[in-house]
């Protein structure tokens, strides 16, 4: 079965144009709960409350304001906000092509697969040229009334457009000094490195599964049919004091079970 495209657009790379369709690459498989009022089991809803008068308002009745650092509230009218909305467009403009490491993955937000639209030849040529140049594209576009920036790159030979966080959202650690303290002992460092080495493996994403989801479904089923459910309040383990002894014992245990 083919999935439905979220959006149609044209990649503009200089003079060249590549029509594409966007498909969400990530799916949400988590179990969602409803929030209920404990007393009467009625679902809760969110409402806006005037802090001073206690009156409840709807979103349509609310106005928007910007709060400055000096605690000035600047009221913004609906038509003023309308005017600064981005102009709708179907163009994804490629601004720059960069070495893959130039934009760290920490900026990445959500991945979208790109599929061909009206010109499949251009789509296949795009894949080939991204592969040959080994570069990622920095893109800008407007989708559903919002400005986006993104990175265009290949994932296993298919083009993926990742939306990016904006600069203002990133917390920079530059200027931060590494945590300090008494010098670490060589013997302990050596043991710690050995332990990392012994537990080293290749990254195999298929080796990890979400067991929690299934167990949660079973728990819900048990409770629904009136079965007994455990209650627990797990505590965190306290910190290890004798690092050297614990590291040595860890190494021995791994060797024994190997």
């Amino acid at each position: 079965m083919t999935a439905r495209a979220l959006w149609k657009a044209v990649l503009a790379i200089g003079e060249a144009a590549v029509p594409v369709k966007l498909y969400a690459a990530a799916v949400d498989r988590s179990i969602h709960f409803r929030l209920l009022h404990e007393k009467d089991r009625a679902p809760v809803r969110q409402a806006l409350v005037d802090v001073d008068s206690g009156a409840a308002l709807t979103l349509a009745q609310a106005r928007r304001a910007y709060l400055t650092a000096q605690k000035d509230l600047v009221m913004l009218e609906a038509d003023e906000l309308e005017q600064i909305q981005p102009h709708p467009s179907r163009t994804i403009e490629l601004l720059q092509f960069l070495p893959p490491a130039a934009v760290d993955h920490r900026w990445y937000l959500r991945p979208y697969y790109l599929g061909p639209d009206s010109k499949p030849d251009a789509y296949h040529a795009l894949i080939a040229s991204l592969k040959r140049t080994d570069r990622v594209g920095l893109a800008r576009w407007v989708m559903r009334n919002k400005d986006y920036i993104g990175v265009l790159r290949l994932h296993r030979d298919y083009p993926v457009l990742f939306t990016l966080r904006y600069d203002e959202e990133m917390v920079s650690l530059s200027g931060f000094e590494a945590p300090s303290g008494a010098a670490l002992e060589d013997a302990e460092l050596k043991l710690a490195r050995q332990l990392v080495s012994m537990l080293s493996s290749e990254f195999d994403p298929q080796a990890y599964r979400d067991d929690y989801r299934q167990r949660l479904i079973e728990l819900i089923e048990t409770k629904r049919s009136g079965g007994k459910i455990r209650r627990l309040r797990p505590r965190a383990k306290s910190g290890t004091q004798d690092l050297r002894a614990s590291l040595s014992r860890s190494l021995k245990e791994i060797k024994r079970s190997a």
């Binding site: 679902p43 409402a47 409350v49």
Partner: peptide
């Protein structure tokens, strides 16, 4: 205005 939870009943 603050977002608050309301009991729907």
């Amino acid at each position: 205005l603050q977002r608050r939870y309301f009991c729907s009943a």
